[in-house]
Amino acid sequence: MPPANPISRVVEPVARVVAIVFGYTILLYSVALSVEIVGRKLFNTSFKGIDEVGGFVLAISAAVGASYTMAMRGHTRVDVFLVRMPKAAQRVLNTLAMVSMAAFAAFAGIRSIAVLQETLEFGSTSSNLQQPLWIPQAMWVVGLGLFGVIATAYAAHAVWLLATSDPRLNAFYGPLTVDDELESELASLEARQAEEVVRG
């Protein structure tokens, strides 16, 4: 195991809890959607606007999930060329990747606030349910804001490691290698097999 990233040690537990909460939200939503399917076919009832709620669930989940994905280094990067470059070049590019991601996340966060402001100004309501649009949008803004803050912290840390010639930079901020990803996949398989053995 590589040394744990000190930023991730703070970020990961928080992001994990939030991600699990929205996992339950997605699960709950799929149950509601299943009730809709059956209710519509058999009892001729329909939750008006359940599709609209789904759109909100997705937008918010994607926003809040971005932080957890960041902590797990799960946002896609093409690493094949990078890993063949000299270590010094990798240090610069990895820092650049973190800084650019932070700029992206911060911009997305700031612009999302402007969207929410307009919604509040107009008193916009959702198209089908006619419920206040600011409620889902505020959650979306919080998700993106969190992402912006976290991405900025990572970027600052990467810049610091680069400036202080800290050798851990590439280990913390290089693209997740496939080995790392499969570590958990194999662990999960072993767990399943162990269970299988116990059950006979």
Partner: peptide, 27 residues
């Protein structure tokens, strides 16, 4: 008999992580 909180939460974490990754690219 395979349903437990641990596997459920692991499934959630994977789901959120992959969804956020895909949606950031899609957006």
């Amino acid at each position: 008999g395979r349903l437990n909180l641990r596997m459920l939460h692991e499934s959630f974490l994977s789901t959120l992580s992959i969804t956020a990754m895909i949606m950031l690219i899609a957006a």
